[in-house]
Design a binder for these strands. Sequence first.
DNA 1: GCGTGATTACTCGGATACAAGATGTCCGAGTTTGAGCGG
DNA 2: CCGCTCAAACTCGGACATCTTGTATCCGAGTAATCACGC
Lengths: 132, 132
Amino acid sequence: MKYSKATNYALHTILYLIAHAPDRAIGVQQLAGHQKVSPTYLSKILTKLVKAGLIESASGANGGYRLKGKIEDISVLDIIHAVEGTASLFDCHNDDDRCVIRQAMRAAEDEMEEFLKNTKMADLAKKAVAAK
Amino acid sequence: MKYSKATNYALHTILYLIAHAPDRAIGVQQLAGHQKVSPTYLSKILTKLVKAGLIESASGANGGYRLKGKIEDISVLDIIHAVEGTASLFDCHNDDDRCVIRQAMRAAEDEMEEFLKNTKMADLAKKAVAAK
DNA sequence: GCGTGATTACTCGGATACAAGATGTCCGAGTTTGAGCGG
DNA sequence: CCGCTCAAACTCGGACATCTTGTATCCGAGTAATCACGC
């Protein structure tokens, strides 16, 4: 039970894009350089973000990844869902919808997701700058 | 990023003990029978709960597992921590304590844990009975 | 100067390799209960 | 009837085997900008 490194990379990448290049594309090699990840692997992760509509990719020379629309609205939850999937964290192994444990776990999960949904990446970017 | 089946088994076992045998020991075979798990595997999981002080084991004939003290206080979080460990769900790969992403994730996690800490197994047991 | 083709710098996607953790099984060892047996 | 022994029913713990998932790499294909060359 841990968040994957992929989620970590994705979050940092978005944060970097918002802070350093809100309106232009940046190559995956440069993005990977800041995080000590292999460019090919990061590319694979970012593809998920593209499919989720959070960013867009530009092929060819001077290509790369760029934020796509409504920057202020990207929440931490959006990124997590794009990378980890939207499946629930807890599944009762006997598929009982009325299982009280399952209900409790779902409620706890919703609590966390609500928090992450209200935490916008743009705010974190500002916070990071202010802390420096 | 998912809760393990082991956590699932542990939660259901505790729930069963509270509902059916708050004061006596029940053999692992009987406990496993209700959940379609192999007794040996369930035993391995329950050992973690014993080490966490939530239940105690009795060796020998008529042995098994029994709830240990203060039944009303066992929370869902206690069990999860016993099985999954208490480590944080999110670790920033560059070990930066001031990482804003890490801070946000920890805060969200705390939100969920607070909820799970306030959800007592005894209450879930009552709820399960009432729903029947 | 201008179009055309080659070169270069990229991303994309699939296939594959590798590692770690979750899941599950097996077996020997220790422990308690209870039955059986002999005095 | 008492006490001893022994077998049965348990849990405990470690050592494996297996399966899934996360992590990472490699390579061929496609794409866009740029450069070189010839007209």
